[in-house]
């Protein structure tokens, strides 16, 4: 197993432009390496073959900041989970994302692992996905050909597949702030209380006015090849009064909307049921 950057044949471009330049040519292109918390494990276990070259992206200053615009938080792809959970803007405007980041691995993983790595890794158990999805934001990818914004809900195209081209890397995320008066909730079910890979997890964004559900967005991970937005549930309850009837309907609809599998972490029937229960929990929580 490669344990040094030399062994990984890892390039350290001086800036983003240089990185994109390296990525543009087959002869110099390498596997983007951010925190390595997924890659190192995958290489060691043989899930992924060691690539010929790696290109470090974590050190690029252009990718390491969190900024705020009027209506969105703009998060660099090399921002770590630790930065995320400690960012005032994220805690305030994307609270479920901050909460999710706080449950990833332990401190070591949180200080090494990045948002870009998590999203590009495209695991259905990636804990940041639901919160990113419910923001309805964009993933901004770049290459020498220029930048392009991919709506997050179209970014993951299948199990560990993304809409990125070979020469592209993720540069940042543009995630719309939650509207005033709204709330977000994150919930993770894992086999233990820390250092847990999720059995099922999800986030919701909810805006209630006059006892009615004005906006409800919910995304659940680990129940399908990619993290899923439960559009049917969202449509079912939007505009309805927030009461037991709506909640029960949402619970049933959510369980019906997912097709999870049995795997080493959990069972399909439990995952299906608990997806409904989580949606119930999300709505009940705001019922107070």
């Amino acid at each position: 197993m490669a344990t040094t950057f030399e062994e990984m044949n890892c390039a350290f471009p001086a800036n983003l432009a240089e990185a994109l330049e390296l990525m543009s040519d087959e002869q110099t292109r390498g596997r983007p390496l951010a925190g390595g918390t997924d890659l190192m494990v995958q290489w060691e276990s043989g899930v992924l073959p060691m690539p010929e070259r790696a290109i470090s992206v974590k050190h690029l200053p252009e990718l390491r900041t969190i900024e705020e615009s009027d209506d969105a938080v703009i998060i660099g792809s090399a921002v770590t989970h630790m930065q995320l959970r400690r960012s005032d803007a994220v805690v305030r405007y994307l609270p479920s994302l901050a909460d999710a980041a706080a449950t990833i691995g332990g401190y070591q993983i949180q200080t090494m692992g990045t948002v870009g790595g998590s999203v590009a890794n495209a695991s259905p158990a990636g804990d940041l996905a639901p919160s990113i999805m419910i923001s309805d934001g964009d993933v901004i990818v770049a290459s020498v050909r220029g930048e392009r914004a991919i709506p997050v809900n179209e970014f993951w195209t299948g199990y560990r597949k993304t809409d990125m081209a070979e020469d592209e890397i993720i540069v940042r995320f543009r995630l719309p702030k939650m509207p005033e008066g709204a709330c977000e909730v994150w919930r993770k079910l894992g086999p233990r209380k820390a250092q847990a890979i999720s059995k099922v997890m999800g986030s919701c964004r909810l805006l209630i006015s006059d006892g009615h559900i004005e906006q409800f967005r919910v995304a659940i991970g680990s129940v399908a090849p990619v993290c899923v937005r439960l559009r049917a549930v969202e449509e079912l309850v939007t505009g309805k009064p927030l009461n037991e009837e709506a909640i029960a309907a949402a619970e049933a609809c959510a369980a019906e909307s997912v097709k999870p599998i049995d795997d080493i972490r959990s069972k399909a029937d439990y995952r299906k049921w608990v997806t409904g229960r989580m949606v119930r929990g999300f709505l009940e929580q705001s019922l107070g």
Binding site: V41, P191, R192, K193, A194, A196, I197, I264, R265
Partner: peptide, 10 residues
């Protein structure tokens, strides 16, 4: 990763 034992948090 898959063989899960308790952590101090548990």
């Amino acid at each position: 990763q898959t063989y899960v034992i308790p952590t101090a948090m548990d």
